[in-house]
């Protein structure tokens, strides 16, 4: 994807703000799970209703798999959050985050006829905040969101310099 698109400062600012805000949210989601001793995704996964119902049921019924999923969930959220805030490997973490959020969404989408025992904050019809956050993250992945006010800008510069030396 082409990196050198010209954006006016306000457009850059909006991208940076979106990146940092989503990063902040995901990082805290990860940390808050870490701070709850005994936190497990089992409750959420056993509520799974739609196309991932069977898969989630399998995760919950295997203690070993559940532990791996819990671990990846907590540390994955934290890594994605940090990556977005400091703008490092922005595209990779934005795509990983999009996949993760889509998995959350697909496990309990607010579709007509699907009812959950866990209460949701807000009222949804098909589109939920999780889906919107996934879409916003994907937008960050297709724009060079880490190139402005992010470590990706100097990472790329170093890479560019090394290429020149080799030439």
């Amino acid at each position: 994807m082409k990196q050198n698109i010209n954006l006016i400062p306000l457009q850059k600012f909006v991208l940076i703000a979106l990146r940092v805000l989503i990063g902040w949210h995901l990082l805290y989601e990860g940390i808050s799970k870490l701070l709850i001793s005994d936190w497990s995704s089992a409750g959420f996964l056993s509520e799974s209703k739609w196309i991932l119902k069977g898969f989630s049921g399998w995760i919950v019924s295997n203690a070993g798999v559940l532990n791996v999923v819990d671990f990846m969930n907590i540390w994955g959220l934290m890594a994605i959050g940090v990556g977005l805030i400091i703008g490092l490997f922005t595209r990779t973490v934005a795509i990983s985050g999009t996949i993760m959020l889509l998995l959350y969404y697909l496990n309990n989408p607010p579709l007509i006829g699907l009812e959950y025992t866990l209460p949701s904050e807000g009222s949804y019809l098909i589109v939920s905040k999780t889906l919107i956050e996934a879409a916003a993250l994907f937008a960050l992945a297709v724009f060079p969101a880490g190139s402005f006010a992010g470590l990706d800008s100097i990472r790329r510069r170093f890479r560019f310099r090394n290429h020149k030396k080799e030439a």
Binding site: Q3, N4, I16, V20, G23, W24, L27, Y28, V82, I85, I86, G87, L88, S147, F148, A149, G150, L151, D152, S153, I154, R156, R157, F160, R161, K164
Partner: peptide, 29 residues
């Protein structure tokens, strides 16, 4: 405006500061 097109042998201070803008956010966090 576009550091990529103008590689220099050393990073300009201002560019570096901009690249590190996320770090204070992490501090506040």
């Amino acid at each position: 405006k576009d550091p990529i097109q103008k590689p220099t042998t050393s990073l300009k201070r201002r560019t570096l500061l901009k690249a590190l803008a996320g770090i204070p956010v992490l501090g506040v966090f």
